[in-house]
Amino acid sequence: MRAGYGAHTVLHALSLRLAPGTVGCLLGPSGCGKTTALRAIAGFEPIGAGRILGDDMVLTDAGHIVPPEKRGIGMVFQDLALMPHLDVASNVAFGLHRQPRAERDARVAELLELVGLAGSAKAYPHQLSGGQQQRVALARALAPKPRLILLDEPFSSLDVELRERLSQDVRAILLHEKTTALLVTHSQFEAFAMADVIGVMRSGHLHQWDTAYNLYHRPADRFVADFVGEGRLLPGTRRADGAVEMELGVLRAHAEIPPPGPVEVLLRPDDVVHDDSSAVQATVTARAFRGAEFLYSLRLDSGREVLSLVPSHHDHAIGCRIGIRLDVEHLIAFAI
């Protein structure tokens, strides 16, 4: 699909496919168009070109929109959008108004049990904590058993610790309900914790639609390499025999890397290993203690920087010179 406002294009040729029962995620910095994509899928925004299909039925194309209420979609809004005048049970029952009362009550009870709020059915949203409100919003969206549930930055109003716990809970709930879900977030930790497939977006372009593992270890381009995880790019030369020569040594490469010539190699912190017996040495310029490990920033003799993750019993002061070597499983290189 392509979408925008007036002359301003927000989404350029965005294309993705979400298999039933999986959790997808659009990940990107704010303003990348991910929320517009989500709203287009919900039917709140028209699209300029392309199609949105649900179970092979056209939901939106350039001239036609199936209204949101007829799409069988549930949504958890960024501000949650709980009805402040209704109690928790009524909020969850909000989308079930066409069902017989007994059925509705049973479904509400089931969902409240599932999200761990069985005791708070009569409470009002403002009496709940942020995390509890989050669960009510999720229960409300799930109640009518939608084909697809959309989550728009669902944890943005919560503090970091709560986010981590809740994102795992939410994934468990989504799997339990066997719902297909699409999440939008700017936090890669949320994306990694919840999604089976993640799309990295920037300025309306979808850079890569892949698993978390592949985004980290096989980024499609420089932006994905930089945005997902930590790491540094180091220059090198791709030789005719396939190996890549760089200041830290020669690396054997597999088929996917660019043709012979100058390249840039992505080095993750776990690719650079501390080894006292190594001839290659670097100077510690900064260090961050992470419990089990130190993340060291190291300056090479060329003046370039790499990151290295070292078990935390190797305690080196800033200014120390330590031996390092490369231990690269997948070589990631981009042609310059």
Binding site: A42, P68, E69, M75, D79, M83, F94, G95
Partner: peptide, 17 residues
Amino acid sequence: SRIKPSLDEAARLAGIT
């Protein structure tokens, strides 16, 4: 101002228009 636009959208998804 208490009726945020998202409330309208949530109602709409619930089939309340």
